[in-house]
Amino acid sequence: MVENQRWLNILAHLVLIAGVLVVAFPVYIAFIASTHEPSAFVSGVVPLLPGSNAANSYADVLTGGVSSQMSVPISLMLKNSMIMALSIAIGKIVISILSAFAIVYFRFPFRQAAFWMIFITLMLPVEVRIVPTFQVISNLGMLNSYAGLSIPLIASATATFLFRQVFLTIPDELMEAARIDGAGPLKFFKDILLPLSRTNIAALFVILFIYGWNQYIWPILVTTDDKYQTIVAGIKRMADVVDSEPLWNYIMATSVLAMLPPVVVVIMMQRLFVKGLVETEK
């Protein structure tokens, strides 16, 4: 700090407090709304102070007691989201770390080609090729399945590059020492590379879990059967009621529940989260 100007520090605090409030505002409103009776939204303006219906709202959405607007309970959607997010995060990490291992530690015909093929996925986000990708999934009979929800999303150039970068910084001599110590490629991978990439894997996991959890358009397209509905995609269906007022307390309770897992992950693992975010952009 160059100097301590009181008024600048006060201004900085004010800016930050305003920022924190603006950032928290929508979530506060959502939480308050979730604690009221449906009747609180019929007229006038949304309430700004907590109501007394919180327990009922959350119990109802979790157990599916609002069947008029939801065919499955939120607990099932949460489970589906969890399966999808974990499959995507773990899947991406596994296939990326394996291909990075092959690309860095072996020389084989078509290595360059393989690298570029993986690189291309960076340029083809799912939103862009959504229609033909949907046709592929549908032809493969993967609609309405956990495999269809996760597998098409687990190719990852970013994660492959990250692991490649990590491996390249590991001294060559470590692999040579391991070979002299009698470790073959798979043993070296398991005993040396995996432990040395531990924090990178954890950081990446945080980012990818959030990515997987927050998927929206893909689950909407791939799942027509409500059994596979994920929570982020499910909210939209709840809100899209045609002929009646939306049940705001339920929608907002669902929103709060949908936000909770990834937000908790970010807050609990802030250091890993920041590391992951910065690394994946390299």
Binding site: P171, E173, E176, A177, R179, I180, G182
Partner: peptide
Amino acid sequence: PADRDIAMVFQNYALYPHMTVRQNLSYG
């Protein structure tokens, strides 16, 4: 290399950073 009955000492030592000294010595 492992089958040649040799041992090598490297310039940068190439110790396995995540293993203790004992684990380093016994890995091979």
